[in-house]
């Protein structure tokens, strides 16, 4: 087990470099330059100014030199300074946006698992019943409907029409004057719509996985045996079937770890949540190379780590993998 782990960890290093190299090249091949979007067609920006800005950012050097410079910094865990006019360290920009993204993603993931798994179990147990079909339609509607559209409809209904929930942001303006209880209520109210909507879209995947893997298990002979020896149904389901059926779901849990730091741009824009999705989108639009690369490196690292954790969980849950 330890050898396997070390081997996996060792192979992560070249993979990480490969990912950074490819991302670096691709990002730099996109037409346009940092600040170019702002400065283009601005009468006050002369040619000299443009050259000055280019050399200031080191963009006048060939691409491989730029990559080497970037690599030398990144091995020291220095993510560099943003090319955006605020010139702040990339790591600060990521740090201030990470908590809210992780909070929302964790909550919506919890929601997905808490709602999705029971739906899956129900649909497997009462396969082809009317409620099964209704639930399936419901989760697929969530999967298929565009998030921004549902978000706007719900914002209009709960925000403008009923005036029950706030429309956007994560805190009210009078947040500092509220008591602790009201503060929690305030944040919770702001989070209801975003979390529900992002959870709604993810229900289909997990409930389908759950349903299929449970159906698979229910067909096994040992389940028939369990019924035959007179166990009550709930016991068969919970003790015999579910344990085995949960394996693939654990894998998905591991694979969703990198997803925790990523956010959807459209979703965050609609709810004005200052999260990672927006940061990444804006960095791409402004060709802010250090920030883009910083987010990509962290994302790549977490993806690899997530895969590793999924494998370990698998091994822990299934003795056949652990021993073999």
């Amino acid at each position: 087990m330890l050898r396997y782990l070390l081997k996996r960890l060792f192979f992560m290093i070249p993979m990480l470099f490969g990912i950074t190299l490819i991302s670096f090249v691709v990002i730099h091949l996109v037409p346009g330059e940092p600040g170019a979007l702002d400065a283009d067609m601005n009468p006050k920006v002369t040619k000299q100014v443009r050259e000055r800005i280019r050399s200031f950012y080191g963009l006048d050097k060939p691409l491989h030199v730029q990559y080497w410079m970037w690599l030398k910094r990144i091995v020291k865990l220095d993510f560099g300074v943003s090319f955006a006019p605020d010139r702040r360290p990339v790591i600060d920009k990521i740090k201030e946006r990470l908590p809210v993204t992780i909070l929302i993603n964790l909550l919506s993931m919890a929601l997905i698992f808490l709602v999705g798994i029971p739906i899956g179990i129900y649909c497997a147990r009462y396969k082809d019943s009317i409620l099964d079909k209704a639930l399936t339609s419901f989760v697929f509607a969530g999967y298929a409907a565009p998030t921004f559209w549902i978000a706007l409809l719900l914002m209009m209904f709960f925000g403008v029409y009923l005036e029950l929930l706030p429309i956007s942001g994560i805190k009210s303006f009078n947040f500092s004057e509220l008591s602790f209880f009201d503060k929690t209520a305030d944040v919770a109210k702001h989070l209801i719509l975003p979390v529900c909507i992002s959870g709604f879209g993810g229900l289909a995947g997990i409930s389908r996985y759950m349903k299929n893997s449970l159906l698979e298990v229910l067909r096994q002979e040992y389940i028939t045996t369990a019924y035959a020896k007179g166990l009550p149904e709930s016991m068969v389901l919970r003790k015999h079937a579910l344990r085995n059926a949960l394996l693939p779901v654990i894998t998905i849990l591991g694979l969703s770890i990198p997803g925790l730091i990523g956010g959807s741009v459209i979703f965050e824009s609609i709810f004005s949540i200052p999260g990672m999705g927006q940061l990444f989108y804006m960095s791409v639009m402004a060709r802010d190379y250090p920030t883009i690369m910083g987010i990509l490196v962290i994302g790549a690292f977490l993806t690899l780590l997530g895969n590793l954790i999924a494998d370990i969980c698998y091994a822990l849950a299934d003795p056949r993998i652990r021993i073999g």
């Binding site: 706007l152 956007s168 609609i270 004005s272």
Partner: peptide, 20 residues
């Protein structure tokens, strides 16, 4: 004087209708 950042123009319009 507060300047809120609302990156989506549809949301901004809803906030206006809601007096935000």
């Amino acid at each position: 004087y507060i300047m809120r950042i609302i990156p989506d123009s549809a949301t901004m319009f809803l906030e206006l209708k809601r007096y935000g």
